[in-house]
Design a protein around this nucleic acid. Structure first.
Length: 506
RNA sequence: GACCGGUUAGCUCAGCUGGUAGAGCAACGCCCUUUUAAGGCGUGGGCCCUGGGUUCGAGCCCCAGACCGGUCACCA
């Protein structure tokens, strides 16, 4: 214990010792019989209501206003805050006033967990308050919490805003900034909404491997690790697509998974090395059907989260009400650039990209060039939810060739607020075609495309046994959560975003 | 990875042209029995991110680095 304690930390440790000397256990083990939550009482209690003669609450002491022999304080539980009134002669009815004069007034610190028993009343100013008759220390806090105060106008003082502090010590952020909790509760509402939607359709929630001998199902660089006993290289999954399709081969009609995926790439306000997608595969369906499902599900998510289909995101108001606009990729490019590239070969595309001011890596093939043009010129302008359909075959090695259009696949993405939120296709189930696509990926890899896919023989074997026609979908849930909670950065929808190593001084 | 900005008390932030480190809140002491950003009086608290350099003298100027943020690049 060579760590330098600040003055305030030392005082709290001294208080801890004094509490122990008074025979009070600062970290008692027995349960505390909580009966009420602060917010529930505030919502239901009216002055003088019966049924509130005995309430028991527990939480952190967040503010003390001491006025001699009586005090007001604020207790914060998981639901919110409740004012409590502590009167010396009521919590210390006998001669011994230690509990009030010493323990409550001096030895309890902001952040300590306490339990209170008492009854409800309203103060002269009309605030719902617990009149405390018994007070118990439940757990001592040894580090001072930042004190954030809000006045009657809602103006916040000394708000903890430093992003580094907030992300590294999320536990403090959650205690001190009440809106943070709201975002994460909303995120869970989003998950529950989807889960209910999909379960109601009898699709099966499943789990598939995170440690994979081959990574696949997306184009990205993986994290690599090693299994000691098997002495083999394993990768953290970049997607779970190929495993879920194996389950469709196995005879499930619909499977989905909320999956943590891992991509060893740059970080930004839209990218965290680990992130969450939901992937869904449904047999005997196609991508047109899947578009309808996405609209229906995301509209429901917005309703469940906000009670409306209109969501405010930054400057924009986004309306998720069905139906969403649908463009083919070529139509979108023509709409935003005035150029029809649908019949162009690779050199013509290169020239077009150049004239549009889109710089193209020479290693890129035809499909990637089209994607670059779309990404540069169209994506950011699509604010309202919009489906973009029919992508070039070269950049979609797992999607089925278009039933009518040469060189394209039956694929769509939904774009919203200028960013992709989902990706889906009629899944390629022809094992011979799939093998050729993988082989083309290997060639792209040789040309220098670092994200080209690996050839997965076991997956091909499963397709050879036969996979029914299937529609597949992936939704980036962090991105969707950002939109649905109006969060500027992915770090605001992840409890513990990835950070560089911190050196904690000991 | 590139460019720009930031890092000072527990928190939010000042700190001028280089001259002994500041405020509010929090903490500590005293007063106060319905307050509410409670109030009054008083007190303490600092590796000014780290390491070099310039200077009589550096929180401030210069160089290098760490971490954070923004923009861009990368990113299905």
């Amino acid at each position: 214990m060579s760590r330098q304690l600040s003055e305030q930390e030392q005082i709290r440790r001294d208080n801890l010792t004094k509490i122990e000397e008074l025979g009070i256990n600062p970290f008692p083990s027995e349960l505390y019989p909580v009966t009420h939550l602060a917010e529930d009482i505030k919502k239901t209690y009216k002055t003088g209501d019966a049924g509130f003669e005995h309430v028991v609450l527990a939480g952190r002491l967040m503010m003390k206003r001491i006025m001699g022999k009586a005090s007001f304080a604020e207790l914060q539980d998981s639901s919110g805050r409740m004012q409590i009134y502590v009167n010396r002669d009521e919590i210390c009815p006998g001669e011994d006033k230690t509990m009030y004069n010493t323990v409550f007034k001096k030895l309890l610190d902001i952040g300590d967990f306490i339990g209170i028993k008492g009854h409800m009343f309203s103060t002269q100013t009309g605030e719902t308050t617990v009149h405390v008759t018994e007070l118990t220390l439940l757990s001592k806090s040894l580090k001072p919490l930042p004190i954030v105060k809000t006045d009657a106008d809602g103006k916040v003082y000394d708000e903890v805003t430093d992003p580094e502090f907030r992300y590294r010590q999320r536990y403090v952020d959650l205690v001190v900034n009440p809106d943070v909790k709201k975002v994460f509760k909303q995120r869970t509402t989003m998950y529950n909404s989807m889960r209910t939607f999909l379960n109601d359709k009898d699709y099966l929630e499943v789990e598939t491997p995170i440690l994979q001998p081959l990574y696949g199902g997306a184009a990205a660089r993986p994290f690599k690790t090693h299994h000691n006993t098997l002495d083999m290289t394993l990768y953290l999954r970049i997607a779970n697509e190929l495993y879920l399709k194996r389950l469709i081969v196995g005879g499930f009609d619909g499977v989905y998974e909320f999956s943590k995926d891992f991509r060893n790439e740059g970080m930004s306000r839209f990218h965290n090395p680990e992130f969450t997608q939901i992937e869904l595969y449904v047999a005997y369906k196609d991508y047109d059907w899947m578009m309808d499902l996405v609209e229906e599900m995301v509209e429901k998510v917005a309703m469940d989260m906000h009670g409306t289909t209109v969501v405010k995101v930054g400057e924009n108001e986004i309306n998720f009400q069905r139906p969403w606009k649908r463009y083919t990729m070529f139509e979108a490019i023509e709409h935003f650039t005035g150029v029809d590239i649908s019949a162009m070969d690779e050199p013509a595309l290169r020239d077009t990209a150049k004239s549009l001011g889109v710089s193209i890596d020479p290693a890129l093939g035809k499909g990637k060039i089209i994607d670059e043009i779309f990404g540069e010129k169209c994506e950011a302008q699509l604010i309202q939810p919009t489906f973009i359909t029919d992508y070039p075959v070269e950049m979609s090695p797992l999607a089925k060739k278009h039933r009518d259009k040469e060189g394209l696949v039956e694929r769509f993405e939904a774009i919203c607020n200028g960013k992709e939120i989902c990706n889906a296709f009629s899944e390629l189930n022809d094992p011979i075609d799939q093998r050729e696509r993988f082989e083309k990926q290997l060639e792209l890899g040789k040309r220098g495309d670092e994200e080209a896919m690996m050839l997965d023989e076991d997956f091909l074997r499963s397709l050879e046994y036969g996979m029914p026609p299937t529609a597949g979908l992936g939704i980036g849930l962090d991105r969707l959560a950002m939109i649905m909670t109006d969060s500027h950065s992915i770090q605001d929808v992840l409890f513990f975003p990835q950070m560089k190593a911190e050196t904690i001084q000991e």
